[in-house]
Design a protein around this nucleic acid. Sequence first.
DNA 1: TCATTTTTTGGGATCGCTTGCATTAGGTTG
DNA 2: CAACCTAATGCAAGCGATCCCAAAAAATGA
Lengths: 345, 345
Amino acid sequence: MAITLKDVAAAAGVSRSTASRALSGSPLIAPETRVAVKEVADRMGYRPNRAASALRSKQSHVVGLVLNNLINASFHTIAEVVQRRAAAEGYQVMLCITDADPRREESFLRTLAAHGVDGLIMIGTGRNTAMANALLAEGIGVVNVIRAAAESAAPSVLASDREGAHAATSHLLDLGHERIGFIGGLLSANSGLERFAGYEQALRERGHQVDESLVERGPFDSAFGAEATERLLRRNPEMTALFAANHEAVFGMLPTLVGAGIVIPEQLSLICYEDIPWLRWWQPPITVVDNGASELGDLAMNLLLQQIERADRSTAPVRTGRAGRAYRVGAQLVLRSSCAKPSAG
Amino acid sequence: MAITLKDVAAAAGVSRSTASRALSGSPLIAPETRVAVKEVADRMGYRPNRAASALRSKQSHVVGLVLNNLINASFHTIAEVVQRRAAAEGYQVMLCITDADPRREESFLRTLAAHGVDGLIMIGTGRNTAMANALLAEGIGVVNVIRAAAESAAPSVLASDREGAHAATSHLLDLGHERIGFIGGLLSANSGLERFAGYEQALRERGHQVDESLVERGPFDSAFGAEATERLLRRNPEMTALFAANHEAVFGMLPTLVGAGIVIPEQLSLICYEDIPWLRWWQPPITVVDNGASELGDLAMNLLLQQIERADRSTAPVRTGRAGRAYRVGAQLVLRSSCAKPSAG
DNA sequence: TCATTTTTTGGGATCGCTTGCATTAGGTTG
DNA sequence: CAACCTAATGCAAGCGATCCCAAAAAATGA
């Protein structure tokens, strides 16, 4: 029932091959023929059948996007950017939500491959690296974002968690703070580990050392943020600054500070990780570390498109066995009004 | 290079037809043959080629999801729910972000059809209803979410904006408030219109009428929220309650209230539209109207699966010409601690 | 003008799977 | 035991595009 290439060809009075070439932008066709066919095609409302095209040409114009969830701001920002770039380049995006479960991740990788995706971008669990590498070897583009196992043969786009945390902590130290609280993610999470390392390193560089009573680590959620903040305030009345490196925890932390009647920045200087909209509108606007989610997504898509193009040219895609190159997106300290010199006393 | 059905069939010593039937769960095959073939298949790591399958069987096991963006909490919640349900039912989701631009929307509809999606869920602009109806007539499932043009032949899952706003306003009136501010979306947006109608209706029912000096309408963004709040506070010192019906505006509103030193709920009772995480953790926790984003997504996916199943059975999908049935997901007032009786004086 | 090159077009096989129809095996029945 | 039926399998024709190869047409040169 749908209009096929055959119909268009017949209507235009050319062969199917010619019609195909006219519409797919092949150079071996007379310009007049091309316009003629194109005109007929969109007069008829022709829609090429992608399944057929994919079957024959091994190009689906679909890319997969595998990530934990869409609630997290970094993740949905990345998803948006990737989708937009993809659409602009003529690709569709298949969305896969794993909840960081390796089994689901594996299932999605299989399915994406079955659907013949040209490539995929994954915020992976690191537990299916072998499979991802196998896909890569088959000629499917793969790009890791945020997390990347060492054995991954695919290129990676990483955030600068350590550097971001270092910059934030250094900024507070520069202002003269010495008792700087840290609310972070679990050390089992890579970003949690890295941000703590940045905090620690900055302190060390100034001759301080980490006081564990100023440190709270926990799951990435708001309830933890609220509790951690309360504990810190109770335990350390002399704390003059706070670095919230666990961005979900911020949802719980800020209200708790307000509830405790803490005045920012007079009584407490504050820096949060990740530039979520709220923080810019807070009173006072909160200084944050922007982890560059948009850039992460954008760069990942660039790398993926490169891979796809490359695979396109060479019939036998030669992938080196060594680890994929890692790119790093810088974290940026966005200064606003939540930091001040510690009040004397 | 990849393993095809032919390889599996050869390895299992059966014909391609038999292998196909064994793997696709056809009833006309001997149980022993089925298990034998299945075993061979996954020993070989066989991955059926979906493109080929789609081409032949006209079923892609892919559904499209068309929406404005992923930043908005309702939207990414819906996206998550839809993806999860889809995956559980063996479908993949193609993500399309339109920015509410009818031209992009149209382009995505074409592309999704070209990719042979079995169906699609759209938070549409209402400007491509004819095209959506055409797809429906072609046998592609369509479900509208949140917005639906009257001429749409597809079923719709609608939010209860008016009822939600009515409930919120009534709650404030019940507490004894008479000067209730309203921060809403532009009347050009359907939800903005409906929520204002709910506000108005509740006031009317109690013998009040809308005082336009208490009403602020503007774009769905945080800057507007901040400005609107300031204007309202300046213009109406005697305002005792505020209903924020524009959920993006809340990002700007809350900080402004805090900055102005307003104590909630003693000086001002507050209800916000949409249950975003922050609001539960705010001090005090904010009473909200939950528009039921998860349910919207879930119900939409149910309806879509129904349509797909139906189209599956009947060779000639008979779609009535009349408007698609509309389902409504209730809005729920979630009582927390941001509302109190107005203080005397 | 005719041979030769270049450009453009058409024929037809093919991608991997599904499916209608024919065939075979195995079991029943009169 | 022939005739018949049922269940299981195989054959082969597509689905709608792409693309190799050959043919035709147009352009070029001697």
